[in-house]
């Protein structure tokens, strides 16, 4: 069986749509909990002060999501959403490899490396 561009295109379409739908469902689900718990407190976004520490560490984020903390569930959904296009690049890489188009396997890996470098640069600061 030979892989063609059209096979990969339909797979990539599915990855993008699926990732978007899943993450939005998680965001809405978390949003309901968030409003239910904090609906009557006063929001403050006027001054930048980052986000609470429990949302920035992946371990505590998952822990807080399990105990139905709305903000943590939303943040997980957001991470899924950000991961969707990156996952799309991963699938493209596999697709190009199956087509034996090694030039584009290299180009896709380079794109993934740049995103990884970006992730590391954020971590360092």
């Amino acid at each position: 069986m030979k892989f063609k561009d059209t096979d990969i295109q339909s797979l990539i379409g599915k990855v993008l749509r699926g990732g978007m739908m899943l993450s939005m469902t998680v965001v809405i689900f978390g949003g309901i909990f968030f409003i239910y718990r904090h609906g009557h407190s006063i929001p403050n976004y006027k001054v930048f002060k980052g986000i609470p520490p429990f949302l920035q560490n992946i371990g505590s984020l998952i822990h807080a999501s399990i105990s139905f903390k709305g903000q943590a569930i939303i943040q997980l959904g957001i991470i899924l959403l950000i991961a969707t296009p990156i996952l799309r690049v991963v699938f493209s890489t596999i697709g190009f490899a199956l087509e034996k188009d090694y030039l584009y396997v290299g180009i896709s890996i380079l794109v993934l490396l740049i995103i990884f470098a970006s992730m590391m640069s954020g971590h360092a600061g």
């Binding site: 965001v27 949003g31 943040q75 957001i78 991961a83 954020g122």
Partner: peptide, 28 residues
């Protein structure tokens, strides 16, 4: 656009620029 935005979102995520309570209504 999605991949481009993801490359900078991974930085913003770690800097605390992405605040779930605000992002939720915006993205929906």
């Amino acid at each position: 656009i999605g991949v481009t935005a993801s490359a900078s979102a991974v930085v913003y995520l770690q800097r605390g620029y992405i605040s779930p309570g605000l992002v939720m209504p915006v993205v929906i």
